[in-house]
Amino acid sequence: MASRGWTRWGLFALVGALPVLVLGWLAVVVVRFATSDYPLGGGPEKVPCAEALDFGGAKLPEGAYDTECTVQAWMDTDYEATFRMPRAGVRDWLTGTYPKGPAPGTELCDESADLCLNLDSDEHAPPAGVDANAVVVNVTYEGPDTARVSFSAFTV
Rank of each mutant, 00 (worst) to 15 (best):
A2V: 03
W6R: 14
T7D: 03
T7M: 09
R8E: 03
R8Y: 07
R8K: 02
W9R: 04
L11M: 12
F12R: 02
A13W: 08
A13F: 03
L14A: 05
L14I: 01
G16D: 00
A17H: 11
A17C: 09
L18Q: 02
L18V: 06
L18I: 01
L18P: 00
P19F: 02
V20D: 02
V20T: 10
L23W: 02
L23Y: 06
L26V: 05
A27L: 13
A27V: 08
V28M: 15
V29Q: 12
V30L: 14
V31K: 14
R32T: 13
R32P: 00
F33R: 12
A34C: 08
T35R: 15
T35A: 11
S36H: 13
P39H: 07
P39Q: 08
G42H: 15
G42W: 14
G42I: 15
P44S: 15
E45V: 10
K46M: 03
K46S: 13
K46L: 10
K46D: 11
V47T: 09
V47C: 03
P48A: 13
A50I: 11
E51F: 08
A52C: 14
G56I: 13
G56D: 15
A58M: 15
L60W: 10
E62R: 14
A64K: 12
Y65R: 13
D66A: 09
D66Y: 09
C69L: 10
C69Q: 12
V71K: 11
V71D: 12
Q72W: 13
A73K: 15
W74Y: 15
M75T: 14
T77L: 04
T77N: 08
T77P: 00
Y79A: 10
T82I: 06
T82Q: 06
F83I: 07
F83M: 09
P86Y: 13
P86L: 14
R87L: 12
R87V: 06
V90D: 02
R91W: 02
W93H: 12
L94S: 09
T95I: 02
T95H: 04
G96K: 00
T97E: 10
T97C: 00
Y98N: 08
K100H: 03
K100S: 04
G101Q: 03
P102R: 06
A103W: 06
G105F: 01
T106S: 05
T106N: 02
L108D: 14
L108K: 07
E111T: 12
E111C: 01
A113R: 00
D114M: 08
D114T: 04
L115R: 04
C116I: 04
C116H: 02
L117A: 03
N118R: 11
N118I: 00
D122Q: 14
D122A: 03
D122G: 07
A125S: 06
P127F: 01
P127R: 14
A128F: 01
G129H: 13
V130W: 14
V130N: 04
D131M: 06
D131Q: 15
A132H: 11
N133F: 01
N133Q: 13
N133G: 13
A134H: 02
V135N: 08
V137F: 02
N138G: 03
N138W: 12
V139R: 00
T140G: 00
G143A: 09
T146P: 00
T146F: 09
R148G: 05
R148Y: 06
V149P: 02
V149T: 10
S150M: 06
F151D: 08
S152H: 09
A153W: 11
A153F: 14
T155E: 15
